[in-house]
Design a protein around this nucleic acid. Structure first.
Lengths: 299, 299
DNA sequence: TAAATAGTGTCTTTGAGACACTATCGT
DNA sequence: ACGATAGTGTCTCAAAGACACTATTTA
């Protein structure tokens, strides 16, 4: 490897160039991460016979400073120049939940100029999925301002307009976040335009009740991604405890997909993703159910 | 709406807070966009009877400065604080291809600390798909340093190691970029670790011949995304001219998916995505083929 | 024994895969 | 006529949907 080092127009080698490199002082955006931490929780039923209801939950933090003082936001923080984005995300996740080593996935990077009224902030959103039973320290115990909210989303309007060479599909989706103390809600407009064969999508917040920044858009995006991925990956098992019944698993699918599934077909479909154990549920007001675990070793 | 404005711990209203807000002088990363601009091109066959070969092409730019002087990189540039990330991406796309209004999609944001030797740079990658026939001005005509490369990718090794509570799946993928003048090539290692029910993936460059930065990873990611999306969306029609034959469409599918498809099944499957026209191909050395167009108005 | 959930059997429908077959052009 | 591609018909097999049916627990 005795080749003459390459030099640029100024006659500098790469080494020399890097030594004298001046990053300059043009303005730079700040970069943050925002975390969408989901889990599944159970709500006890009044009827001893019935199974406890399950719900999808999202962790939010009440803002103690301007802007959006008093409103709820996704946990997040700045990415330092000395850490990777993913490290920043894991750090935020850990400070909120005290758990490391859980499923996490980058979703989307939000870069509108005016998304933060203080200054230019670009935010990279991550989704994390936690099995509630491994949340030893309930998030929010240390920080009095963090809380889990039940997430629900609903298509409230869908309209189609014919265009010159295509059409425009507008959907209004209401997202509601709810717990014992607080109810938050907002509406996202999702526009899909097809013209010629170019397809574009654009989302915007139509209405937002108590939710900071563009975080409603992030939630909408995350829910969509979760829905999509649940159908063709095993991502859902990150939300399940180590042992679970097939009915429980089916209910979690139903919550995420927003539709009911037929038990027989469901069982056939997931048969090779799970392994049965010798254990059964106890003290149900009805026939006990076999417990299963995730089978990651299949083809 | 006569409520008293909220004040923070310092007694400031949001308006007052924003007026006095000082963004501070901690270090910030630079943010760039990198564009993966794909198109499909034809190569004439020597045999007059045979159809011309199709290939997936990617636009690259030869670097005229350090670092990676002389190597090839994805077109891209800095995101200014006065434009959104998407605006920056469209701007880059336009300066490279002279086309506006084509399909574009954000892929992933790359945030490793050392990915640029000059300074901390976070890069948001976008994929754009162009129908070659609408590329009036061939990209690279103005910039002598831009060129299209045929992309091919190949799984060269796949191994599985059993772990305590799971397994590790390692794949080596070779990506080759080729045109009349130049051949570039590199190998990406893709590791998927499953432990408990936590699944993680990590990619790294094992070998890179003439490709700058971490752009090989971006290519690998984009190809994977393209493959995935082709199966469950109509994204592929962005690569097709307004009129095309079903055989052409099938070939583009085959190139992207990297496998052969059976004509009968293929035609049944895409039947409702296309509309037949009254036109036919001419001067083929064989039976002429009906031309179709994309049918965006189906259910 | 009734209410509730757990779990199975089977018929139908749908779609993918395989492959043979027919059709039609240019030289 | 031949080489190449265009395009169709049909059999098989696998998976999804529908739904009736059986099984098992506790108050």
């Amino acid at each position: 490897m005795n080749k003459r080092p390459l030099t640029d127009a100024q006659g500098l080698t790469e080494e020399q160039f890097l030594q004298t490199y001046d990053a300059g002082e043009y303005e730079r955006p700040s970069v943050t991460v925002d975390m969408l931490i989901f889990t599944v929780m159970e709500r006890e039923q009044d009827n001893y016979r019935k199974l406890s209801d399950k719900s999808l939950q999202l962790l939010l933090i009440q803002r103690g400073q301007h802007p959006y003082l008093g409103q709820w936001a996704l946990p997040g923080g700045f990415v330092s120049v000395h850490e990777s984005i993913e490290e920043a995300a894991r750090r935020e996740l850990f400070t909120e939940t005290n758990i490391d080593n859980i499923y996490m996935e980058q979703l989307y990077t939000w870069g509108e100029v005016e998304r933060d009224p203080r200054m230019r902030v670009i935010s990279c959103s991550y989704m994390a999925l936690v099995d509630r039973t491994t949340l030893h320290v309930q998030a929010g115990d240390d920080a009095a301002d963090a809380a889990w909210f039940e997430v629900s989303h609903q298509l409230i309007e869908s309209s189609r307009k014919e265009l010159e060479q295509g059409y425009e599909l507008v959907k209004l989706i209401r997202i509601t976040l709810q717990n014992e103390q607080t109810t938050l809600s907002g509406v996202v407009e999702h526009v899909e335009t097809v013209q010629g064969h170019v397809r574009k999508t654009h989302s915007r917040i139509v209405e937002s009740e108590g939710l900071a920044f563009d975080h409603l858009l992030m939630m909408q995006y995350a829910i969509e991604r979760l829905r999509g991925k649940v159908e063709y990956t095993d991502i859902i098992f990150n939300l399940m405890p180590p042992l679970f019944t097939l009915s429980e698993l089916q209910r979690v699918y139903e919550i995420i997909l927003g539709k009911e599934l037929l038990a027989a077909a469901f069982r056939r479909k997931i048969a090779d993703r799970v392994t049965e154990t010798e254990e059964y549920t106890k003290d149900a007001g009805h026939r006990p159910s076999k417990l299963y675990r995730y089978n990651m070793n299949r083809e």
